[in-house]
Nucleic acid binder design. Structure first.
Lengths: 194, 194
DNA sequence: TTATTACGAGACACCATGTCCAGTAAAGTG
DNA sequence: CACTTTACTGGACATGGTGTCTCGTAATAA
């Protein structure tokens, strides 16, 4: 069942205005304080237009943050997986002041909404996770690191460290952390042939 | 400025009823869906009684989750720091199905409320963090592990891994993870005298 | 007893929700 | 061109939570 071809097509300017307004409001007032009514007014859009295409503010912000993260979602691997890893982390960390609070709110909203949780996982979390995992696999294939610790666990530790700092905010999420984490990955995976 | 000694004292039964009702509702409906009005009705308490002692549902749930975590908040160190580490993790992991969604919601609420963030950090997050850090320090003092990776980073990686799994829920948070993380800590800190 | 504070219950104005309806706009079809 | 179909803005609407206030009552110390 695809979208019908008949009738007036969906307005792309309205879609963009909604997503931009949502991002603006979440930066200004925080995730919790954002309302659909507020987004509609900020975007200069009828409220019905939002309800027609999204079912909740979480869906709006999920789409907004996915587009926000698009630039770093598909990096071309260079020859050096460890360099790639560092770059992915640095890119993510740079986005984290904006994306962090949003994804944090999305995760909280997802706790008692299995359908939205599945969508959040498949369209955002799993993709970012795969980014790290595939880079680590590449590093192993290239013989840059060994296989001391299970790759799944290392992947979780990499993203987890970032998330813990983003959420608890007891320490900055910056390039220094990106370098430290990269080094820790080396220690965890160990030397070749170990 | 202490609480006045005059007048009718605060009702402990009412306090308990509020905290218990809040926990019950957050389990049933999820963090977002919990309302102060709902808590008051579930607890059989006047709404004003809640507003008198707490400023928001986040404050109510923070107090509730702190009391929930009290049993594992002050473990007596045995002689074996690595055993202690495993026990702290296992205890936390056991609580995570209840406490995880709550703390996740609290963190989301704290993103644009600096005062509450400070309270959340000092009364909950920093204490749990210190639990791990002090255990690792003890392990180093006892010569069980070396000092290969900075203790702060290792601490963040331990909690971070748990949080990432609690929030993203792509893999279980169980005893297997506790053991894996403990082993990873050994790898990160390295052998003595390294 | 009196002063003081806490309690349950309910009223209140305010605001966001999600739905509905109107009138208008933009596309394809005859 | 009319005609059909769908999208758009704007507003109305009942519902339900917010935070404050007031009432009558309960519990404590002086």
């Amino acid at each position: 069942m695809e979208t019908s071809i008949l009738g007036r097509p969906r307005s792309e300017p309205a879609r963009r205005a909604v997503l931009d307004a949502a991002l603006r409001l979440v930066r200004r007032d925080g995730y919790q304080a954002v309302t659909i009514k507020g987004i509609a007014e900020e975007a200069g859009v009828g409220r019905q237009t939002i309800y027609r295409w999204w079912t909740s503010k979480a869906e709006v912000l999920l789409e907004a943050v996915i587009e926000l993260a698009r630039p770093i979602a598909q990096p071309e691997p260079t020859g050096d997986p460890l360099h790639d890893l560092r770059q992915i982390l640095r890119g993510s960390f740079r986005l984290s002041p904006v994306a962090g609070p949003i994804i944090s709110g999305l995760m909280a909203d997802a706790t008692n909404d299995p359908e939205f949780l599945a969508k959040l996982q498949s369209e955002l979390l799993a993709r970012r996770r795969a980014l790290i995992r595939e880079t680590l696999e590449r590093a192993q294939r290239d013989g840059l690191v060994g296989a001391g610790t299970a790759l799944d666990l290392v992947t979780d530790m990499v993203w987890g460290t970032m998330w813990y700092r983003v959420l608890s905010r007891h320490a900055p999420v910056d390039e220094t952390l990106a370098d430290q984490v990269t080094e820790a990955v080396l220690t965890l995976l160990g030397p070749v042939g170990k």
